[in-house]
């Protein structure tokens, strides 16, 4: 604190005290924020962002978005989520399908790592807070409704990255159809190569975007770091894609 002379200190002190009095004096007449909870539970509202309980939204056809990948289960710090899934054959393709999504409300710490990491946005937190029950067992809930199934993804699921890969994938994509072999292994490799190329392309797009952002705000160190990171990731993925392409070429040869 700077040293003020006696009188200027006195007057600035009085001024700041009056500011304080003004604030509290205004507060005396504002609407009070207290919630009379049990009485107003009919029309009580809680913030949308409040983390009350984990839920899996279902649409009107009793369909959810969970594909049973188990990423939420892996991310959960204390084993609150158990994803039980099975492999089923759909149109000759093997596919993972959710059987039961078990959520133990009793051990949830509401960190939201599960909802953040869910690739399909299948789970959310609901602002319901009246969770008290009489036994621990009652807190263990199954989130997918009985008879529900995973919603079929609409056809243009990933159009954002698909048209782009021409730049990096042009090296590998012509190879794939050119391979006449019906060897399973080669087909798999080709698929892997395509995926790697896609990934690399996506990363490149992301890196370009980040770089553009960083260029727009040159003083923001965070954005610049993010752009550098994205660029590094793109380069890495490009190398991976190249490697896979080489492998494909070898296998085809």
């Amino acid at each position: 604190m700077e040293n003020k002379s006696y009188f200027s200190g006195l007057f600035s002190g009085i001024k700041s005290l009056c500011t304080g009095l003004k604030v509290t004096g205004r507060e005396l007449f504002t609407k009070k924020v207290t919630e009379r909870y049990p009485e107003n539970r009919k029309n009580n509202t809680v913030s949308e962002r409040f983390r009350g309980v984990l839920a899996m939204p279902h649409n009107e056809n009793n369909e959810h978005k969970c594909v049973g990948c188990g990423i939420c289960e892996m991310n959960c710090p204390n084993g609150t989520i158990k994803v039980e899934s099975e492999m089923v054959e759909v149109d000759g393709k093997k596919k993972k399908q959710l059987v039961r999504y078990i959520y133990d409300h009793g051990s949830c710490i509401y960190c939201m790592l599960c909802t953040r990491s869910c690739p399909h946005g299948a789970i959310t937190f609901q602002p319901e807070f009246e969770s008290a029950v009489f036994s621990r067992e009652a807190l263990v809930k199954q989130l997918n409704k009985p008879g529900s199934k995973c919603a079929e993804k609409p056809a243009p699921a990933r159009p954002a990255v698909a048209p782009k890969p021409a730049t990096t994938a042009d090296v590998t994509t012509p190879v794939a159809p050119a391979a006449p072999e019906s060897d399973d292994k080669v087909a798999k490799l080709v698929a892997a190569a395509k995926k790697a190329a896609d990934n690399a392309a996506a990363a490149k797009v992301a890196a370009e975007e980040a770089a553009a952002k960083a260029a727009a705000a040159p003083e923001d160190a965070d954005l610049k770091a993010a752009a550098d990171e994205a660029a590094a990731k793109a380069a890495k993925l490009a190398i991976v894609a190249d490697n896979v392409a080489k492998k494909v070429a070898e296998a085809q040869a």
């Binding site: 005396l28 009070k32 924020v33």
Partner: peptide, 13 residues
């Protein structure tokens, strides 16, 4: 009550 009002609360009720 008054202290609660100054703090934007309702006080004992």
């Amino acid at each position: 009550k008054v202290c609660a009002w100054f703090q934007c609360r309702l006080g004992p009720d």
